[in-house]
Amino acid sequence: MRRANLMIGAVTAAGILAASPAGAEEPSGKQLYDLFCTQCHGVNGDGWGLNTGDIRVLPRDHTEKAEMAARTDDHLFKAIKHGGTAVNKSNLMPAWDANMTDAEIRRVVAYLRELCDCSAD
């Protein structure tokens, strides 16, 4: 059974509130995560997204505190911007540099820190 994480619910609500009317111009980290990341990493970020039924390498669980804390913000930024192969991980994690600006990727990294409720060690 997967965790129905109350903390994530709170984070989600905070994310929605953060999406102000100016959201059309500046999407929040959560909005970007929802659009680009949840298809594999799951709606609550636990790595069990819609696409994991027939996938060769399971996506990372972004709610796993210890694993996420072991990665710096720059490492996460690089993995998102240039894809899994840029950090010696699976090519199933694509490069998102055409989908998001650097500033937007930084907001996704900040959202990842909310999901794991952690900062880099």
Binding site: M1, R2, L35, Q39, V43, G49, T52
Partner: peptide, 13 residues
């Protein structure tokens, strides 16, 4: 957009 329709299942979304 899958996000409008996806929900958490027991094993995966």
């Amino acid at each position: 957009y899958f996000g409008q329709n996806v929900v958490m299942g027991d094993e995966r979304d």
